[in-house]
């Protein structure tokens, strides 16, 4: 089958700003963010929803941007790691939870989502909420510490 690059215009809010973008309708949100808008904080680890590196907030809810078609985003609000409260990233950095760092933005977004839903999660709850994010470097020990440090934090 011959590929034809049909493009359509999409409109959504990205990190608080209105975005109009032309993209093939088959594109995922991840492809639009990275390949068209060149906003690369959101990482591509597998493009199949297995690793969590591409996690973003869609209307405040954590989703895999690699499994979200751009057409599903029409008129909605997308928040990427670049606009997530910096204290989450800071906790990851301070606790040594960042090594190669490629999975970290996804963890940061997933953590922000967890904390928006649960003020003071237990160890088991943190594990349950972050189980869709894979890290190959840290063994997760310091990631848990970083998230625990944010729990119950009102700042």
């Amino acid at each position: 089958m011959q590929y034809s690059r049909v493009e359509k215009e999409f409109f959504f809010r990205l990190n608080g700003e209105e975005v109009r973008v032309r993209a093939p309708p088959g594109y995922t949100l991840l492809e639009v963010l990275r390949h068209i808008l060149h906003l690369t904080g959101t990482k591509d680890g597998c493009s199949s929803g297995d690793c969590g590196a591409c996690t973003v907030l869609l209307d405040g809810r954590a989703v895999h941007s690699c499994l979200t078609l751009i057409s599903q985003v029409e008129g909605r609000e997308v928040t990427t790691v670049e606009a997530v409260d910096e204290k989450v990233a800071d906790a990851y950095a301070r606790h040594g939870a960042v090594q190669c760092g490629y999975c970290t933005p996804g963890f940061v977004v997933a953590t922000a989502y967890l904390l928006s839903k649960m003020h003071n999660p237990s160890d088991a709850e943190i594990r349950e909420w972050l189980r869709g994010n894979l890290c190959r470097c840290t063994g997760y020990v310091k990631i848990l510490k970083a998230v625990e440090s944010l729990a119950g934090d009102d700042g």
């Binding site: 904080g41 760092g101 933005p105 940061v108």
Partner: peptide, 14 residues
């Protein structure tokens, strides 16, 4: 704390 950590965590590292 690693000097590259915060930039990586914020998604700014290329």
């Amino acid at each position: 704390v690693r000097r590259d950590a915060l930039e990586k965590a914020r998604g700014l590292t290329k």
